[in-house]
Design a protein around this nucleic acid. Structure first.
Length: 564
RNA sequence: GCGGGUGUAGCUCAAUGGUAGAGCGGUAGCCUUCCAAGCUACUUACGAGGGUUCGAUUCCCUUCACCCGCUCCA
């Protein structure tokens, strides 16, 4: 399936529109149409029902170490700025980036020095320099540099000023050495000199690790949306739209404990919007700047956390399978150790092979992370960093915490064992929009069905799970006469009390079937001549096209059964 | 943020420096007894702003959005 076809169908049938479309659209923002809003609501409700509401706290679910409780929360989108400072988002999401003016590549400012050490062209340059034991430069051989620039350098560092304008660049370097011969020239300074084309105009410039070209000044790419509270806009009034829903759960940990009588192990669930000012929103709704998360923070004893991690990882994977994502397009991938976040002991991604990705590539639907006690401790003690194997409070130059925590005690007291500890956290964090998109991609089907004359005709249908389908059933009179519409309308009124059903009497019945196929309606109920004599109707299955007769009085029970 | 490509009706696609067409769709009606039938009528577009020009959808500039690559991100 080509993504274009799905995008076209989504627009045509009212699943997804570009935000603010009449004004040309806004990158990274999307609107759900009348069909889309039902679909996404069904995704959310399936999740809430399966994870929270419908969870039986008295039974041990398959694969779970024990029984557990589940409750929900709905937290504000804008929270105290200190929340994001302690969580690490404030520092992490303030990346400074530099662009190479020659090769146009984008690099993180704080990675440049490290990347230069590993750069191919720097290594090549190193072969013509003489170094002392402490890596300082002993001698600058202008002849050798020039020779390198005109041969090897031309290949590995085409953007380097020394390569593009060797004489000009070298003369600046020579002048520098002549003017202050007592100050030794470090290798970093040398790299800057040979990367600088017009010293007088631009000053020294940092070289690009890729091509040696000159980098722009570091510019801030803040991934958190900012706003201000109150009338005065200054640094003190600055607030952020949450980049994840999780922190609302952590900061309410004590409130939940004190108000609900839950005891460990238990999970707190939340569904809500989050915002990230992504540099490059791409791939339909997959990477949006405003998106909805479905997150669980599951609190447990540290010694049981691995078992719970395993449980949630498998439980969440199965959830997608049960709702129709194909096993060969869905995978559960454990992160490599070097890929893990600074706080995580283990993380697995649930990924789907979206059609916009290259063959063999997968996109993340959900991350299931073992977060240890990182989050609760962060809000208790202040922003944490890993040092050796330990998490310690990050300190500034004066030795004070760089971001002070709340100071509130996040310990849990176990009445059974009389132990006091900070619970460990398992976090299954799912994207509602990504799940919705995956279900749409999976459901999109083109097949051939015989038309009126018996010839094969192309059909587009959405083979959505009945729980997810926006419209659960459509009710048609076969023709618009002989009292059929009256009976059909009666059935519609009856069913509408139980499910989102749709009535249609316009045009040929085949056309009405096709229209429902395109929005994924699993069942079509048709009132025909026989209905008027024996009270039965036909039910037509979207995927098999099979039809069978049911007494119209049994319809409510049958449809409800089929929608479970 | 950079480079390349693309923007004409709800969708797919034409034509044009001088009144923008079609197919499909949608709406209404007729007809129609099970998979997009037929007939009639109606409906709807040059992404936005500026410039050149007597006149711009067409040429130029800017901008916005989408696609591909870089980069980033989960």
């Amino acid at each position: 399936m080509e993504m274009d076809q799905l995008v076209a169908l989504c627009k045509r049938r009212g699943f997804l529109f570009q935000s603010s479309e009449i004004y040309g659209g806004l990158q990274g923002f999307w609107d759900y149409g009348p069909m889309g809003v039902e679909l996404k609501r069904n995704v959310r409700e399936a999740w809430w029902r399966d994870m929270v509401n419908g969870h039986n706290a008295l039974d041990v679910p398959p694969g779970a170490p024990s029984t557990y409780e589940m409750v929900g929360l709905d937290c504000s989108i804008i929270m105290h700025p200190q929340v994001w400072k302690c969580s690490g988002h404030y520092d992490l999401f303030h990346d400074f980036m530099q662009t190479c003016r020659q090769c146009k590549k984008l690099v993180r400012a704080d990675h440049v020095a490290e990347m230069l050490k590993e750069s191919e062209w720097v290594a090549s340059l190193g072969t013509v320099l003489t170094r002392g034991p402490d890596d300082s430069l002993l001698d600058i051989d202008a002849e050798a540099l020039l020779k390198w620039a005109k041969s090897k350098g031309r290949k590995v560092a085409p953007g380097l000023a020394l390569v593009r304008k060797p004489e000009v660049t070298l003369s600046c370097l020579v002048e520098r050495i002549a003017s202050s011969p007592s100050v030794p020239l470090g290798s970093g300074e040398l790299l800057s000199y040979i990367a600088t084309e017009q010293l007088a105009v631009t000053g020294l410039q940092a070289p690009c690790p890729h091509c040696g070209g000159d980098l722009t000044e570091p510019r801030e790419f803040n991934l958190m949306f900012e706003s201000n509270t109150g009338a005065v806009r200054d640094d003190n009034s600055k607030v952020f739209l949450r980049p994840e829903t999780a922190q609302g759960i952590f900061v309410n940990f004590k409130n939940v404990l004190d108000s609900t009588r839950v005891s460990i192990p238990f999970g707190v669930a939340q569904i809500g919007k989050s915002f990230r000012n992504e540099i490059t929103p791409r791939n339909f709704t997959f990477r949006s700047r405003e998106f909805e998360q479905m997150e669980i923070e599951f609190f447990c004893r540290p010694d049981q956390s691995r078992a719970w991690y395993q449980y949630w990882r498998d439980r969440r994977y199965k959830w997608y399978l049960d709702l129709g994502l194909a096993g060969d397009r869905l995978r559960l991938r454990d992160h490599d150790a070097d890929e893990l976040s600074h706080y995580s002991v283990g993380t697995a991604d649930i990924e789907y092979a979206f059609p916009f990705l290259a063959p063999g590539e997968f996109g993340e639907l959900e991350g299931v992370a073992h977060r240890g006690d990182f989050d609760l401790r962060s809000h208790m003690e202040g922003k944490l960093v890993r040092q050796g194997g330990e998490l310690i409070v990050e300190k500034d130059a004066e030795g004070k915490p760089s971001h002070r925590g709340s100071g509130k005690d996040m310990n849990y007291f176990d009445d059974q064992t009389k132990e006091r500890f900070i619970p460990h956290v398992i976090e299954p964090s799912a994207g509602a929009d990504r799940a919705t998109l995956a279900f749409l991609c999976q459901a999109y089907t083109e097949d051939e069905v015989p038309d009126e004359g018996g010839k094969a005709a192309k059909r587009v249908s959405l083979k959505l799970h009945p729980r997810l389908a926006p419209i659960k059933a459509a009710i048609f009179p076969l023709v618009k006469k002989d009292g059929m519409p009256e009976v059909a309308k009666e059935i519609y009124g009856e069913l509408k009390q139980h499910a989102n059903v749709f009535y249609d009497e316009k045009g040929a019945v085949g056309r009405r079937y096709r229209r429902q196929d395109e929005v994924g309606t699993p069942y079509c109920i048709t009132v025909d001549g026989q209905t008027l004599t024996d009270g039965t109707v036909t039910i037509r299955d979207r995927d098999t096209l099979k039809q069978w007769r049911t007494k119209k009085d049994d319809l409510v029970a049958e449809i409800r059964e089929r929608l479970r």
